[in-house]
Amino acid sequence: MSSYHLDHLQHLESEAIHVMREVAGEFERPALLFSGGKDSICLLRLAEKAFRPAEIPMPFLNIETGHEFPELIDFRDRRAKQLGAKLIIRTVDDAIARGFATPKPGIVSRNQLQTPVLLGAIEEFKFDCCIGGARRDEEKARAKERFFSFRDSFGQWDPKNQRPEIWNLYNARLNQGENMRVFPLSNWTEMDVWEYIKKEQLEVPTIYFSHERDCFRRGGQWLPVPPAHTGATTPDPYAGARPTEKEPVKRLVVRVRTIADMISTGMIESKVHSFDDIITEISAARVTERGSRADDKASEAAMEDRKKAGYF
């Protein structure tokens, strides 16, 4: 093989940098969705690779459900500060208070409520593009997603009416009110993400490594016991997400493979302490990472339905 050869990670990296620079070149007000999860950690490094030595020319945006792992929030805030980026946070709580998100009675998960909050933030800051860390290998509906995913003025994805994407020529043109979601990691797999994190020696939140935690069994998964409810005068934000008497709490050695919030993230029993351990564990894994996501189990078309409504 000639010396002018890129391995698979170098290929994926170059492709993602190209996509990021197209965003900077084509859009007026882009934002980068940064949750602190492993995929968006890669996005941040790719943004550095695409735009340094200049500043990263877009703010970071995160939509909080209010049920986040505290470790993730700490990490997110610290990382944004290190990079000198502006971090914008919008919350489901605030959206409920202001009346443009309404919880369904009896549903404690706020996963679906993130959609109106995201659309609200896009409207508020007039973002014309949001870069996200979604990958096509995650889920069947995601497998049909483009790099540049067009959304109408209601934020909706129309899978039957996607713009064909040919070569590396991305059509980024929009009319007023429309916007684009851009996914530089489209061609990355879970394994690529971890190999890249290892290669670049990127810091990740501690919950990706094994630790002791109180968990309870529900829906075939180990769910984390939410933090204690302190404010006696306010309703418990985790009502319905706490273990019942029939769900005994166990202290386990666990980690997360994929992170949603505390309500929809299954913990996996695991003993990993290094990136190499994680890579070994994934290569031996018999379920996909989304197998531990309660939000995807709602129905076979759960993701398709949420994406059509404007989800990430």
């Binding site: 698979h8 096509r136 290998d137 889920e139 069947k140 509906a141 497998a143 049909k144 899978p159 039957k160 996607q162 489209s186 061609n187 797999t189 394994m191 076979e300 078309a301 398709e304």
Partner: peptide, 20 residues
């Protein structure tokens, strides 16, 4: 992957798959 495809038994768009 899409509901419409399963119902109609056809593939309506480009789907990307990965393996190594």
């Amino acid at each position: 992957g899409l509901r419409a495809e399963r119902e109609q038994g056809i593939t309506i768009d480009v789907a990307y798959r990965y393996f190594a």
